[in-house]
Design a protein around this nucleic acid. Sequence first.
DNA 1: GCGACAG
DNA 2: ATCTTGTCGC
Length: 236
Amino acid sequence: MREPTEFHLPADSDEAIRIQRALAGNVRLDPLPRPPRLVAGADLAFLPGRDIGVAAVVVVDLRSGQTVDEVIITRPVPFPYRTGLLSFREIPAVLDCLIGLHHQPDIIICDGQGIAHPRRIGLASHLGVVLNRPTIGCAKRCLIGDYIEPGPEKGATTPLLHQGLEIGRVVRTRTAVKPVFVSPGHRVTIEDAVAVVLAVAGGYRVPEPVRRAHLAAEQEKRRLLSPWSRRDWRGH
DNA sequence: GCGACAG
DNA sequence: ATCTTGTCGC
């Protein structure tokens, strides 16, 4: 896919927050220009105890349901985890994956928040601004906002509200299973974001592209930790 | 000060 | 996120 634009790595949390405040104004919520066909999912796994992440991006063809592209990379993560600053930890690795794609996804779903964030620029929004491309945040837990539980049926939704504004939606992606928290990342509306997530909701809680990315990263992590691929094997 | 706190 | 087996329920 196309080369990403700028991503500035902050030296500390204060600078990270300044960057978020500077970038938040660039986030746009627009309807998708056309129905998406290639939907990507991004996720990371971490090697225990170390700041080394395994990132995976999987591109799924919405029509066939098949994976058409996949990139997995392992690299140190350059920023510690802090609530509200997740993007600085995960974006570099995700960008490394995106550079290796052979297909340009129409939209990317991230495992985290979009605008449902204290400064309205969670992981998905930050990535979207850096790429200037449509992104969606789909988190397993709520970061900010108030809501009531959606109905038990797959497809049920309720608004996620914060300071009198709708910042996302609580979405039941599978019947009788805990809902996920969907918010626009960049260049997508709340309605379109929910529609895309439900369109790629297979038989599991996590949308299929993100689920596949999660599995891929997890599998690669296990491979790296297994005795077979260790460099000190046989003395090396 | 108290409680909350994406991955 | 990660450390971790079996078990209860739809």
